[in-house]
Design a protein around this nucleic acid. Structure first.
Lengths: 193, 193
DNA sequence: CTCGTTATGAAGCACTCGCTCCAAAACAGC
DNA sequence: GCTGTTTTGGAGCGAGTGCTTCATAACGAG
């Protein structure tokens, strides 16, 4: 009925996510987005509406890919603590990797930069965080059932404790290059469970 | 010998810190800074050099005031755990206070937005973080000496564990309004010491 | 093919960006 | 007073901002 699109919408969103992730919301211009996606401004605005909407789509893509990968890592074979450790180590190594540009966690960056100013962004970030919390809770519960983690305490509270340590270490990794110190903290926190 | 300045440099830096804190580095324009400080652009550039330099001064001011306040809170009377709890609760209540604009921790915001792109910012943020870590270490050590905290483990590692939980909770507080859940995590983490 | 519809690329809109320039102003020393 | 030095306010620089407009292109339906 009409001219078809010349681009793959998924690829465009992924490229936009990468750019927003690296430079932040305010640090990314619409021309940056046109360059990284390969779209002209008219296509970009016709398809997504604007910079803000594309940012929200990018956060959604982060949930579908990176957050999902964290969840998958929590569900690989191994004991509960091994799985928690594997997820944290993978993220921290990613955070410390210069080749990846030290861009951290996109959801955490969005939380710091935009969440207070935009309720939709706040929702999108919380969606990522809540998903991780839920899965941590499941893993902690499994560890309790297996006798690996003490059963006396609320699984949800323990999960939040792990999550806080996890996110806190990712904050520290933005300015702290000492991998060993970060890993020692991971192990110390897991030993408490 | 020449015309004296009409403004108080300290007040200007504090006003600039407030603006950067609220809107981030890229989200703050030089006109915003002129408005909040009351300076004209010529005075601002003549005195500080530029936006980036003023941002670094603002981070320095944060260290001198807010970070110092956290340290002071850790040194008020009370047991080690009481002091750790007091500091965390105060920050979290500040993070959740709508009247303060949900602006979070300026150093953490800078870590997320700018630290990867500017080594000087990275240094300024690490200075804040390291200062907190050192003081947490001292409090944990005191708690161990008092028999309040188990002496078997390295005080520095425990301090980093507390710090990670602390910063992680501040991240969560950007999108999570449930104060009780955050406090429960604080208490659970402190119970492990 | 023609027609109707949507997508595309390029030019460019009004506005804001970080920053500079400069004449006027406000002092201290003489 | 005058001189020398620094600060101040305001106009405005070139470049970049988010976004729009529009003629043209590229298709599917008939």
């Amino acid at each position: 009925m009409a001219r078809p699109r010349q681009f793959d919408e998924d690829r465009v969103i992924t490229a936009a996510m990468d750019t927003f992730w690296r430079h932040g919301y305010e640090g990314t211009s619409t021309r940056d987005l046109c360059d990284s996606t390969g779209l002209g401004p008219s296509s970009l605005y016709n398809t997504f509406g604007g910079k803000r909407e594309l940012y929200l789509r990018a956060l959604g893509r982060y949930y579908e890919t990176v957050t999902a990968e964290q969840i998958a890592r929590l569900n690989e074979p191994g004991s509960a603590k091994e799985r928690l450790r594997a997820m944290m180590l993978h993220s921290l190594d990613s955070d410390l990797d210069d080749a990846e540009g030290r861009r951290g966690c996109f959801a955490m960056n969005a939380a710091a930069e935009v969440a207070a100013l935009d309720p939709d962004v706040k929702r999108a970030v919380r969606r990522c965080f809540d998903r991780v919390e839920d899965e941590l809770c499941a893993v902690v519960g499994a560890g309790q059932d297996a006798g690996e983690i003490a059963s006396g305490r609320d699984a949800r509270t323990l999960a939040r404790q792990v999550q806080s340590t996890y996110y806190g270490l990712r904050v520290l990794s933005r300015v702290q290059d000492d991998r060993k110190a970060l890993l020692a903290t991971v192990d110390s926190a897991l030993a408490d469970l």
